[in-house]
Structures are given as structure tokens and as C-alpha cells.
């Protein structure tokens, strides 16, 4: 921005205060704050097995219900004497694993279905669009609960359920973008050159829309983590005693009346920080991608 040769009469200071420059600066702030919030949670979770933490499943019986900042237990312990920090970090591995797998899956399904619907049109578009509409009118959380309650709360089932819940968003966006993209001259050129339709989609169209779609898929990670924690909270999460975030809060809910507020509050802060980080990061990136598109056309 500042490298642009300033037209005479407009000081650099004024340029910096212009709406466009402010927008750019605000998306940078969002990206940084987002990255820091997400990093605070993700890095320790990733290192959970390396860090010197107490056992998350088997507690020490004489150290039950310790408040935070007790010696040896930074975030305190639960009534079974299990270290809360250790449980949150190990639980985060499950929650994050499910979230990342789910958005990868829904991203692939969504982009493939959306691109096919947008490029081929006709009956392919009809099927995909009807499916999207049908899913819109179903009570989502109820359906997820139903499936998980009935088919058992294992990591593959929960991942699959979240992925199915989330595919509409990337699918709808991809379809809209492909509809615009397929009218561009380079697609006609590729067709004249005799390239196969699949090749045109995969090698030529999708790379042009990927940056916008991937930001949306990344934003779904926030939703996926929230959904997973909601399911575990309702008892449809990965089985205990293996800790997950929603499960830890659910265990703690009977106990906060006794004054053990940290068992509910602290895992929630971990979820909220991570989701806030992902949301801010995604939002900032989306602003930036949009601006880059607007500049290059």
C-alpha cells in the first residue's frame, strides 16, 4: 500500500487513513489476533503427549477437587483426582482430530458436488440442489443426535455425521463460483483444445476458485469443533473415561453447585478461544482473498 506513488496533494498520512487502507489493516489485525488465539490452544494440544502432564484418565485419589493454581495442577483437578489441564489437552486431540477430518471430508464432498453441479448443470445440478434444499429443512442437531445415539459414538461415526452436516456450505459456494467461472474465455479455450470435461474442472476451474472455497472450509472447523462438543455434552460423544471437551463440561455440570466452577468454565474457555481464533483468522483471510480477487479481476 505505501509503495504506491502518491498523487500530488495527497499526503501519505491521508492515504494511510483512507477506508481501503484501514480495511486492509483491520483484516491484518483479525488474522494476527485469530492466529494467536488459535495457537494458544492448538500448540499445547498438539504437544499433549510430549509435555510432562499427569495421567488424564487415572487420577490421584488424595488430590481430588483441587482448585486451579494448586501445586502440581495448574488448572486444578476433578473429583476423581484427575488433572484438568491434562484432560483438556488430551481431550483437545480428539476434538481437533474429529474437526479436521470432518472438514476435510465435507470440503472434498462439497467442492466435488458443487463443481459438478455448476459445470454440468442439467440433472446433475437438479439432484445436488434438491439435496441441499432437503437438508436445509431437516432439524439438523436432532438428526445428528439420532444417528450418533443409535449407531454408537465412535470417532468415525461422529466425524462422518459432522461432515454430512457441513457439506452444503462449500457445495453452494463452489457451485455459485463455478457458474461464473465456466463462462470465462479460458474455459472455452480449453474446450476448443479438446480437453476432457473432468480435466477442465479439476485442472483449470477448481484451482481458480480454490482460495475462496478453502477459506470457507477452514471456517467450518469452528462449527465442527462446536458441534462435536455439543454432541459430547449431550452424551453422544466419544465414550468416557476418555476425555473430550464437551464430555469434561458435561461431567462438571453436576458439580458446579458444590463450588467446583473450574470444571465447567475452563474447558469452555479452551473451546471458545480456539473457535474464536479460527473464526477471526478465517474472517480476516476471507477479506483478504476477496480484495485480491477484486484487484486481479
Amino acid at each position: 500500500m505505501t509503495d504506491v506513488a502518491a498523487p500530488s496533494g495527497i499526503a501519505r498520512r491521508l492515504l494511510r487513513r483512507s477506508a481501503a487502507a484501514r480495511k486492509a489493516r483491520y483484516s491484518t489485525i483479525k488474522i494476527w489476533v485469530g492466529a494467536i488465539c488459535a495457537g494458544i490452544v492448538i500448540i499445547p494440544v498438539a504437544l499433549a503427549r510430549v509435555l510432562p502432564l499427569p495421567d488424564p484418565v487415572h487420577g490421584v485419589l488424595k488430590e481430588t477437587s483441587l482448585p486451579p493454581f494448586s501445586p502440581g495442577h495448574l488448572l486444578g483437578t476433578d473429583p476423581n483426582g484427575r488433572d484438568l489441564l491434562s484432560r483438556i489437552l488430551h481431550g483437545g486431540q480428539t476434538s481437533l482430530l474429529i474437526g479436521v477430518l470432518a472438514i476435510a471430508l465435507s470440503g472434498v464432498i462439497g467442492i466435488a458436488a458443487g463443481a459438478a453441479a455448476g459445470y454440468f448443470g442439467g440433472w446433475v445440478d437438479t439432484i445436488v440442489s434438491r439435496l441441499l434444499e432437503a437438508q436445509m429443512s431437516l432439524p439438523l442437531l436432532l438428526m445428528l443426535l439420532l444417528v450418533v445415539a443409535l449407531f454408537g459414538p465412535s470417532v468415525p461415526v461422529i466425524t462422518l455425521v459432522i461432515a454430512v452436516a457441513q457439506w452444503p456450505e462449500p457445495a453452494r459456494l463452489t457451485r455459485a463460483l463455478v457458474l461464473v467461472e465456466r463462462e470465462k474465455p479460458y474455459v472455452a479455450a480449453a474446450q476448443v483444445l479438446g480437453l476432457g470435461r473432468l480435466k477442465i474442472i479439476v485442472r483449470h476451474i477448481v484451482p481458480n476458485i480454490l482460495s475462496q472455497t478453502l477459506v470457507v472450509v477452514f471456517l467450518l472447523l469452528a462449527q465442527a469443533v462446536l458441534l462435536e462438543s455439543a454432541l459430547s455434552f449431550l452424551g453422544a460423544g466419544v465414550q468416557r473415561p476418555y476425555p473430550t471437551w464437551g464430555g469434561i463440561i458435561s461431567d462438571g455440570r453436576e458439580l458446579f453447585v458444590t463450588g467446583a466452577w473450574w470444571l465447567v468454565t475452563i474447558p469452555g474457555i479452551a473451546i471458545a478461544l480456539l473457535v474464536l481464533g479460527v473464526n477471526l483468522l478465517g474472517d480476516g483471510l476471507r477479506d483478504r482473498v476477496r480484495r485480491a480477487k477484486a484487484v486481479t479481476g
Binding site: 469452528a222 455439543a230 464437551g246 463440561i249 455440570r253 469452555g268 473451546i271 474464536l276 473464526n279 474472517d283
Partner: peptide, 13 residues
């Protein structure tokens, strides 16, 4: 954005 980032059951608690 923060309002959208908190799990609703947690807000409730």
C-alpha cells in the same frame, strides 16, 4: 465473532 464462538451449553452454565 466472539459471540458465535462460545458453545451455547457453556454460556448457559
Amino acid at each position: 465473532i466472539a459471540g458465535q464462538s462460545m458453545p451455547d451449553f457453556w454460556i448457559g452454565f
